[in-house]
Design a protein around this nucleic acid. Structure first.
Lengths: 154, 154
DNA sequence: ATCAATGCAAAGGTTTTGCAAAAAT
DNA sequence: ATTTTTGCAAAACCTTTGCATTGAT
C-alpha cells in the first residue's frame, strides 16, 4: 500500500502523520498525468475536507517535495505545479513536457536520453542527479498553423 | 554588430528602438553564463541609466523573449531568470542546468541529445520546438557529502 | 503629428509567515 | 505532556497594469 510507505517515510523523518498530509498526497495521486497548482489541489482537497487551509497545502507540498514524493514543475505561466514523483516507484521513469508558447498547451511524453548525460555530470562534477525535467518550448500543431498564417497576412 | 541586428529586428516588428531596450540587452549580453533576475538586471542597468524603471525592465524582457533574443529559465527559487538566447548565433547550442536542491548552486553545461526527441515530437504531435531546456536536480558534490554525513548521524 | 514606450505608483496574484488553537506522538 | 501542525489573517513577494509624460518615427 502506497499510503503505508508514505506514513513510514514521515515517521522516519520525525514528521507527524496527519489527515491533511495524506489527503494532499491522495489528491495528487488521484490525478495522474495532470500538473496541478497549489490552488487546484486546495480546491480538490476541500471537496473531502472543507476546512483545510491553503497555507496547509503549501506547507505540505514543500514537505512532499523534500521527501521526493512529488516533483515541482513550472510552465512559465506564473504557477508552480506539482506531479507525483517517479523516483519512488521504478528506477526512473522520464516525464518530459513540451509547452506551446502561444496557447500554453502542455504535451507530456517519455524518453530515456539522459543516462549518459547524468553519468558524465557525476564524473566531472560529482553532482548526483535525483530528478530531471526536459522542457521543450515551441508551437503546437494548431498554433504553428496560425503563426504561419499570421506571417502571411503581415 | 550584434546591436544593429537587434535594431533591425525591432523595426521589422514595428517596435521602437529605445535606449532602455538596448541597455537591457547589453546588460544581459554583458554577463554571459549568468542567469540574471529582473531585479538584478534593473540594478545593473541603473548603473548606466539611473532613471530606468523596473516596469520597463519587465516589459523589455517580455519583448526580448518574444523576439527569441533571450530565454527564460527558472530554478524554482521564486525568481524567473533570463539568459542570452542561443537561437540567434548558431543553429543550436544546448545549454542545460543542474540545480542543487540543497544549496541552489547551478552548474551549466552543454550537450546534444535532443534532436531525435524533437523530431519524434514533430512527427507524432506536429509540435515545432523552438527552444529547450534540460533541468537536472540533485545534489552537488559538497551537499552530497553533507547529506551522507547527516544520514549517518541520524 | 502620431503612436509607442517610459516611469511612477498602485494593484494584482501567488506564496509565505505569525500566532493561537488543535492534533499527533 | 510535549511538540508539531493547522487555520486564519496579514504580510511579503514578484510581476503586471493604469495613466500622464516623454520619446521615437
Amino acid at each position: 500500500m502506497e499510503q503505508d510507505c508514505f506514513k513510514k517515510v514521515l515517521r522516519e523523518r520525525g514528521l507527524k502523520v496527519t489527515n491533511q498530509r495524506l489527503l494532499v498526497l491522495e489528491t495528487i495521486a488521484g490525478h495522474p498525468g495532470e500538473h496541478l497548482t497549489a490552488e487546484e489541489i486546495h480546491g480538490l482537497a476541500r471537496d473531502r475536507y472543507p476546512e483545510i487551509g491553503l497555507a496547509t497545502i503549501y506547507r505540505t507540498l514543500q514537505v512532499l517535495v523534500e521527501l521526493d514524493v512529488i516533483d515541482k514543475v513550472s510552465f512559465d505561466d506564473g504557477f508552480v505545479r506539482y506531479e507525483l514523483g517517479d523516483a519512488k516507484k521504478e528506477k526512473r521513469h522520464h516525464h518530459h513536457h513540451a509547452i506551446c508558447r502561444k496557447c500554453g498547451k502542455v504535451i507530456s511524453f517519455e524518453g530515456d536520453l539522459l543516462e549518459t548525460l547524468e553519468e558524465a555530470l557525476y564524473d566531472t562534477e560529482g553532482f548526483i542527479v535525483t530528478d530531471h525535467e526536459v522542457k521543450l518550448t515551441g508551437y503546437c500543431r494548431d498554433c504553428a498553423k496560425e503563426k504561419q498564417e499570421d506571417g502571411r497576412s503581415l
